[in-house]
Design a protein around this nucleic acid. Structure first.
Ligand SMILES: [Zn+2]
Ligand SMILES: [Zn+2]
Ligand SMILES: [Zn+2]
Ligand SMILES: [Zn+2]
Lengths: 154, 154
DNA sequence: TTTTTTATGATATGTTATATCTTCTCTTTC
DNA sequence: GAAAGAGAAGATATAACATATCATAAAAAA
């Protein structure tokens, strides 16, 4: 999914609506703070750090929040599969397909920082196999591929 | 490569000898400090953090070193492919095959913390393909798989 | 030897994340 | 509706991870 020009408000709205729906079905609490943080995460298709989110939250008219505020909200959103953490960037990004829980795998453009989530069955199969060949089980897998996106290759 | 009982001094010695050799061929400087840090990284087959290395270094009779000391040594060792960084653990581990530079992929046991490096051709091929399917190039890839090692499955 | 380069030491600070205790809010029970 | 309980958010402090910058030392080059 590339950025190009698109109505990003729709992206945000869709993400929030999906989240509300999912949490309602699971009977977990999609509170105003958690909703606000999810919106902020979805401010762009680029990953955002916890402290950037804190700054954004402060500029929303609220009084300055402390780090635990944002980390707790992120913990919830990650637990519900609404947000993923990018280990190599210490940053967070909204999941475009939160309905079914999964471990996200990511393509990161080193130039424009756009991140695309992939869900490649054959890749997952190969990860499992590579582990099994060494006698390991594969419970979760973190995959972050850095390269150039379509746009930046030109 | 599993741990079980083995003569770990041989592991350390082999790693240091290989490093000395590689740096000599490349005409890069395998200084006493860098050698010491490599030895400390190889103290076990589990990942070790930068600050743990600092503590270990202090207990070697040297006066307390400052963080840049260890980070600079690690930067060198990583650049030379002698050590890899585990992004999801903020930790470092010795490379068992430093002769040929490569991006390491890792199996991490969530119980005993043992880490095994894998170099799976088919996995690398699939990572490249998954990226290309989205129009991305694949320059480097971080793969960290968490599960249980052979020992811990029993 | 003098100059230049590279490595290390030292100090300060920046960035990311968590522990802990308190307060608030909402729900349940009486 | 009041009391009790559970979960969320606020507040404060601190831990854990990492880098910028300038000074000094050691090694290599001229
Ligand atoms: Zn968008
Ligand atoms: Zn996802
Ligand atoms: Zn060993
Ligand atoms: Zn390796």
């Amino acid at each position: 999914m590339q950025l190009r020009s698109h109505d990003h408000n729709k992206c945000i709205e869709a993400a929030v609506n999906a989240a509300r729906d999912i949490c309602h079905r699971r009977e977990t609490r999609f509170t105003p703070l958690r909703c606000k943080v999810l919106e902020l995460v979805w401010n762009s298709h680029a990953p955002v750090s916890a402290y950037e989110l804190l700054d954004m939250l402060s500029q929303e008219g609220r009084k300055r929040a402390a780090p635990p505020t944002i980390y707790r909200a992120l913990d919830f959103l990650i637990e519900e599969g609404l947000v993923h953490r990018l280990e190599s960037l210490n940053a967070f990004i909204g999941c475009p397909d939160p309905a079914h829980k999964h471990q996200g795998h990511f393509l990161i453009c080193r130039t424009c920082r756009t991140v695309t989530e992939v869900n490649d069955k054959k890749l997952i199969a190969r990860l499992t196999k590579a582990a099994r060949l060494q006698g390991y089980s594969c419970e979760t897998s973190m995959v972050e591929i850095v390269g150039l996106c379509v746009e930046c290759q030109n």
